[in-house]
Design a protein around this nucleic acid. Structure first.
Lengths: 262, 262
DNA sequence: GAGTGGTCTAGACCACTGT
DNA sequence: CAGTGGTCTAGACCACTCC
């Protein structure tokens, strides 16, 4: 005998998949569903929680439960890295035309709002190893928020690290009021004579921390994609490391691998 | 005033983060926790569900609640594509030394168990568009399961598609008893004169369907990584499409992007 | 059999949304 | 204000694990 909350969930799932309930539609009230199935309200709520964790419905306190609309996703590509490198040595006037984020997303300049803050920190064990420097080395930690101006939730949280000593010869690189910087990080690095030869991106998925769920306005049960980008210079030395947190339900990443001809 | 279940969750989270409770440790029984906090058992269970969705604890029916141990992750890279291409024209003897999956994971041949099944299907709208062929075109659908022999859960579910007409001149490519095929898909395609020039991989994260959660033995609240790999030949025609479902809690993907020198 | 978590009840009261 | 979901209680009974 199947459990009551599973039977209720199955029935609603079926109604959603078949189109009997369309995206945006309101479900019957919880008390109503309890009445229909002759079960208690907490049992109905168990069923609804199941559907919520599958991403099928959305709960809105005081309003009702609704069939979830699929959200618009943001595309992130790795072809942008070469694109950004090609532009890193152009004039400032040229670079100001479009920034790297616009290329990432295909959005225009006015669709985005930027926030950036720099501070200096001592390298912890994990990040020191990633850079190949001793623990305690001074790093510049740069925190970014990017969002659509039309939406309230950011579409990523970025923390970027640089070894202070490597970039200190250009004081502008230690000053967050210079952000947003036309041409992005590769142009910033080029001002201190650093050319990139390779970028590694490691991707995993995990449940968000409570803080991430709040900042990204993630519905319960949604995962975050975590991307660690490591940039290597032409001596194969790690010169910049970024940790990017992306909402799993609104992000698509495209990686293109060209192959050598036979 | 904070909600009771949040206060209980906070306290346990704190105990876990501080190391007061170590990975693998058993939490107090739910009735015990209810007694300690002078709350009802369902309230305690709300708190525990929260911690479970954050990946901090694991519930084991009849045994207890335990602090979760981090699981061993499998690394998937894009450098394997060039590696696989380089080996696609070697002799069978050479190819049989190691297969593509071993290169992916760093595991030896004996750590893996393969399952493969082929069948022919008519292209639905979505997949037909991805191939650039008319709806209803005959495709070969290939289903794979890969796992550690030591673990019960597969570490990926793969469905691969080929246009039947493109590969039919080699009957072995329509025969699933020839699997596992030494040298992988790129070698299979080379037998019908197809050389790849580029591979696109699109990655998203979403909650698993009930079927996926069962097959991958995913704990509730875990996300899956969904990867669509599209292989293009030297005429920039899509010749193979794979949908790969990976457990988000056990998978790390590494994408390397080389950059051209200035 | 003792101890654990899983399901479920019937209801009370609070918090939020819209009119 | 009416209608919705959110929190919480106090307990019953079932299912699973381990000894």
């Amino acid at each position: 005998m199947a459990k009551a909350y599973e039977r209720i969930a199955d029935e609603l799932r079926q109604a959603i998949r078949s189109g009997q309930l369309s995206p945006g539609d309101q479900l019957p009230a919880e008390t109503k569903l309890a009445e229909i199935h002759r079960k208690s309200v907490p049992t109905v709520r168990d069923a609804l929680r199941m559907l919520q964790s599958e991403g099928l419905i959305e709960k809105q306190h005081g309003r009702g439960n609704f069939v979830r609309r699929s959200r618009t996703t943001v595309l992130r590509t790795n072809t942008r890295h070469q694109w950004e490198k090609d532009r890193a040595r152009e004039t400032e006037a040229q670079r100001q035309q479009t920034g790297a984020t616009e290329h990432d997303t295909g959005l225009g300049v006015n669709d985005l709002v930027f926030y950036a803050a720099y501070r200096e920190i001592k390298a912890e064990k994990e990040i020191a190893e990633a850079f190949g420097v001793p623990e305690g080395t001074t790093l510049v930690e740069r925190t970014y928020r990017t969002r659509y101006s039309a939406e309230s939730a950011p579409f990523n949280l970025v923390t970027s690290y640089l070894v202070r000593e490597l970039v200190a010869q250009n004081p502008d690189l230690l000053d967050d009021t210079k952000e947003p910087w036309p041409g992005g990080t590769q142009n910033q690095l080029s001002t201190v004579g650093i050319e990139l030869s390779r970028i590694d991106e490691r991707v995993t998925a995990r449940p968000p921390t409570v803080e991430e769920a709040e900042e990204l306005e993630l519905p319960p049960g949604t995962a975050v994609l975590v991307l660690r980008k490591t940039s290597y210079d032409i001596d194969d030395r790690a010169v910049e490391i970024s940790d990017v947190t992306l909402p799993g339900d609104r992000t698509e990443m495209l990686f293109t691998t060209p192959l050598e001809r036979w």
